[in-house]
Design a protein around this nucleic acid. Sequence first.
DNA 1: TAGAATGTTACAGG
DNA 2: CCCTGTAACATTCT
Length: 261
Amino acid sequence: MPEVPELNVMGSTIQKLYKGKKVKSIEILWTKRVKCSQQEFDDAIVGSMLQSVKREGKEMHLRFDNGQVLGIHLMLTGAITVQPSDNIVKYPIFELLFEDGGGFIVGDHMGQAKPILNPDIPNVPDIEGKDFTLEYFTMAVRKRKIAIKDLIQDQKVIRGVGNAYADEILWVAKISPWSVSNRIPGNKIKDLYTAILDVTKAASKELENVKVSEFDFSLENKDHRFVHNPKRKATPDGEEILKGKVGNSKTFYTESQILYN
DNA sequence: TAGAATGTTACAGG
DNA sequence: CCCTGTAACATTCT
């Protein structure tokens, strides 16, 4: 369930709720994908105070006053349930609790979401970062020869775009997801760049009032996406939404998106 | 019942 | 060694 707009909302909420509080416990409940031991998590953050929450690509980074960082990656189907909650988390990955009550559980029925101790921050522009410039993006798009949808989702090129918003972005920019990256003309690369910024900003704003109690459900079911949304048959301007595949992921698009190849 | 779920990584082939 | 495409991962829900 995690892309940039969702992570922005979750991150600012976690910060609002727990900034300045000390960690009472962290309990790793599903260790398959986790690199560090329970002991290492305990030593790093138990007793330390939460200073800030920042998003880095598709990860959320919790920084503590002792300099330690807890990274959270929700992968495909992970979710955060703020505690206490009426909902029982069926497949918990880990639980983080603060000293005077509250905290959250990260759950994922696919078992892929994971906590990361002191994660690396790759030298790749985040889509909301200052170093994500039109110049950089134009160069990156021209350098390679793959489907444009795969390119904008490649976290080694830019960090933060995932399958759902990639469809929204390409629809706004009026570019077919199968367009070959190095065949896209300069003015359309600019449209694409602008669409990445605009779609991300608009969706973040749209989601900012979602209730904390609905984080583990409603965020992904909100009707704010216009094409990557199984509930919709047509775009707001009445064009039929088509379904296909780019690489191995499901793609929603329309006929009017131009194919450059 | 096969396929989908907002993702990443390993590996084969060129 | 670089680039690209494909499949695996893992598990429940529809």
